[in-house]
Design a protein around this nucleic acid. Structure first.
Length: 763
DNA sequence: GGGCTGTACTG
DNA sequence: CAGTACA
DNA sequence: GCCC
């Protein structure tokens, strides 16, 4: 993997030499780019990497997160494009007219094609700035930017608006950046420009602008290149020259960093005595002690052990940290250094940003280290078999610590982490889903997920979904690919996309996807109950353009016809209160048949959702068998149809013995929407497994089932089976023998999963 | 390079 | 059987 | 898509 001729020596000061990592990383990125040529972004590539600073950085961040409730990105109002008509088609005798108008309205309501990630700046080729005149200079203010974009649309696409961060976060206010090269040909540079503007900077494209405070040079540029491009012999002292990492790092730390730090240095820069401006020297709590402690703290040991990349990093870091504070535990636990994935971007090198508040950082690290000292990490728990479902155990796996834990063990995990990798191990309560700092990212990724679902790429879709659930649990905004990649279920590709979304507010891949013809139509047809990708695509190839085309021209199955006629109904979420009302009707009627019946509303309702996609009701009775319940269901259906509550049967079992479900539609009162209603008949002995199944959510179920299967079990809605013989690739050979079906808790316990109440099964 | 849940109903 | 649906 |  080593790449001769790519020595980072030039950019990296001599204190630390981690050239191995560096080269690895370059090679890594080269490889990455070769894999995906469409990525023109230059994120994270570059120089070297230092695990210690990486470590400190993370902790610094973590400290910040508590104090800052801010959401670095603009409040994004999310309005999902509606999927439905406003009326159900059936029952309207004037179908043709009303449908027609509805259809056309729908069309216009489809999601607007997204703005391009282009930044709203005119680009001036470097050569063009050679003879600048004061007269023609102009400053591009954020406002001007937006304006410019409006007047200069590109390829018919909408320009993105740079949404300014809140005033209080306008870190770069009063600063004027000049990017070199001053073009927007690179996606990465576009990102940086946008980001700078978002946080208050003025990005000038006129070198003659005498308000320029900073020159942001591309990473590969030497100082002399910069001079050449600018056609100047020297750069005035009042203009700071930094490399491209500087703005992003400032945002990361939420403060204006010292521009003189070596990591921001443009190679070949002449040494200057007057480097430190009073401003930078002043306001950032820098003090001599800190700096010294930093040096003694950090540089030395790293230097000694710099060559030993890998496991030793952990001990180096902890040793250093705890030594410095005098009271660190001797058996310091391993701090969360992830040297695992190679893609990290060079942040501070051995020299910290001088404005760093080291005391705070250290305290945080120590506190954090103390906390994790108690955790059963690594080898402490490598038994596969049941961790008891006690509270402490489950808490330990909760949201935040879950991801931390991963960092700790990622490298060393063996059997211990085997189980930890399953979503069902963690509490997912869907909290913080609103006002989540990653809302925009999640929104974009969801669109990608839906897109992949649409084009039948289930596995990609699954990955996106997993990534989204992970993001929803984050309490901080994930900005950089390197932070993202540390999270479970987020790999390099998704991490890159996350960073792209944060910096550009867009995902090119998605923009392309949306341009694909048939995309919108596919989405429309997929909303039809009973139609999947295959059918939807057939309809499209057949030339159908609207739902009424389907009704008139396509041959539909009965269910699909209902699906079309009640397109709007079935695609409208049901308020929790209405779900309850439907449930009440069913339960009341059922109890009139047999007062010993037990019915419960399941699905998202049981998980506590505010609104549900459908209504799931489980029907069971102490001691009852399936056959017995079947008879009751027939009677129940009869009565519910009789009172005009049930409207339609979409699917029902026709076998007497094992049939167990009914799918259909109900209506709470005449004129109300049809709602999807499912019944599940459950023999008393299977109610535990059935509860798990019918409570979901699906990701949780799949996770639990996968875990079971990996442990030699099989889990379905009837029970947990053991001694399942599986052939090649875990293909089921024997059914296995039932071990548990009655109790939800016991099934969890046997699988070694901390019990999760329904509301914590939202994955 | 292969797996990614397991089942039931429709036509 | 493929396709769709259910969590 | 991710992960093993």
């Amino acid at each position: 993997m080593s790449e001769p001729g790519l020595s980072p020596k030039t950019t990296f000061h001599r204190r630390i030499s981690l050239s191995v990592t560096s080269n690895d990383k370059k090679a890594f990125f080269r490889h990455l780019y070769s894999l995906e040529a469409t990525v023109e972004k230059e994120t994270g590539s570059g120089d070297s990497d230092n695990p210690i600073t990486e470590f400190l950085r993370n902790y610094h961040r973590r400290g910040h997160r508590q104090q800052t409730s801010e959401n670095p990105n603009s409040p994004q109002s999310i309005s999902r494009p509606p999927i439905g008509y406003s009326h159900s088609l059936i029952g309207s005798r004037k179908l043709d007219e009303s449908r027609g108008s509805n259809l056309s309205r729908r069309k216009t309501r489809l999601p607007p094609s997204p703005p391009s990630p282009m930044t709203p700046k005119r680009s001036i080729p470097a050569a063009a700035s050679s003879s600048p005149s004061k007269a023609q200079r102009h400053i591009t203010t954020p406002k001007a930017n937006v304006k410019a974009s409006a007047s200069k649309p590109r390829k018919g696409k909408k320009e993105p608006k740079v949404v300014l961060a809140p005033e209080s976060q306008q870190l770069f206010k009063g600063m004027t950046f000049y990017f070199v090269p001053n073009t927007l040909t690179s996606g990465a540079r576009r990102m940086r420009v946008n980001k700078a503007i978002e946080y208050g900077a003025v990005c000038s494209n006129d070198w003659a602008n005498d308000e320029i405070t900073h020159i942001i040079a591309d990473r590969h540029l030497q100082y002399k290149n910069v001079l050449n491009i600018l056609k100047v012999a020297e750069i005035p002292d009042n203009i700071k020259v930094v490399n491209e990492h500087y703005p992003g790092d400032c945002l990361h730390y939420r403060r204006i960093l010292d521009t003189t730090q070596p990591i921001y240095e443009v190679p070949g820069k002449p040494v200057s005595v007057k480097e430190l401006s009073p401003m930078e020297k002043g306001g950032f709590g820098e003090n001599q002690e800190d700096r010294e402690s930093l040096h003694s703290l950090q540089i030395k040991p790293v230097k000694e052990k710099a060559q030993e990349i890998g496991e030793t990093q952990r001990s180096v870091v902890s040793e250093v940290l705890f030594k410095s504070t005098n009271d660190g535990p001797k058996n310091a636990p391993s701090p969360p250094v992830t040297a695992t994935k190679s893609a990290k971007r060079p942040h501070e090198s051995g020299e910290k940003p001088k404005d760093y508040d080291m005391n705070d950082v250290l305290n945080e690290i120590i506190e954090e280290a103390k906390k994790v000292a108690d955790l059963p990490l690594d080898d402490d728990e490598d038994t596969l078999v049941s961790a008891p479902a006690e509270v402490s155990d489950s808490e330990r796996y909760n949201s935040d610590s879950a991801s931390k834990r991963r960092k700790f063990t990622r490298k060393t995990d063996r059997s211990a982490d085997f189980q930890a990798a399953f979503q069902c191990m963690y509490k997912h309560d869907g909290e913080g889903e609103h006002q989540n700092p990653n809302e925009r990212t999640i929104q974009v990724l969801s669109e990608m997920q839906k897109y992949y679902e649409m084009i039948d790429d289930h596995w990609r879709s699954l990955s996106y979904r997993k990534a989204i659930t992970i993001l929803k649990k984050q309490t901080t905004k994930i900005v950089f690919a390197e932070e993202a990649v540390r999270l479970p279920c987020i790999g390099e590709r998704l991490a890159q996309k996350i960073e792209e979304i944060v910096f550009t507010n867009h995902l090119k891949r998605l923009d392309y996807a949306k341009l694909e013809p048939g995309d919108a139509l596919l989405k429309l047809f997929l909303g039809v109950y009973g139609a999947g990708t295959t059918q939807a695509q057939r309809w499209i190839s057949a030339g159908h353009k609207t739902l009424e085309d389907l009704l008139k021209k396509a041959k539909l199955t009965e269910n699909q016809r209902i699906g079309v006629e009640h397109y709007d109904d079935f695609n409208t979420r049901i308020p929790r209160a209405e779900v309850q009302r439907h449930g009440d009707v069913v339960i009341k009627t059922a109890l009139e048949i047999d007062s010993k019946l037990q019915l419960d509303i399941m699905g998202s309702f049981r998980r506590g959702a505010k609104d549900c996609g459908d209504i799931d009701i489980i029907i069971t009775k102490r001691g009852a068998t399936n056959v017995e319940l079947k008879g009751i269901l027939d009677e129940l259906l009869k009565r519910l149809f009789a009172i005009d509550f049930l409207q339609w049967t979409l699917a029902t079992s026709h076998r007497d013995d094992s049939g167990s479900k009914w799918h259909g539609a109900s209506r709470i009162e005449p004129g109300a929407r049809w709602r999807r209603l499912d019944f599940l008949l459950v023999p008393w002995k299977e109610r535990g497994a059935a509860l798990i199944y019918f409570t979901g959510n699906d990701i949780f179920n799949r996770s639990l089932r996968l875990l079971a299967s990996k442990k030699g079990y099989r889990l379905n809605q009837r029970g947990l089976y053991k001694d399942v013989m599986r052939g090649a690739n875990r293909v089921k050979v024997t059914e296995g023998t039932l071990v548990e079906g009655e109790s939800e808790e016991k099934i969890f316990e046997i699988l070694g999963v901390p019990y999760r109440p329904p509301e914590h099964r939202i994955c």
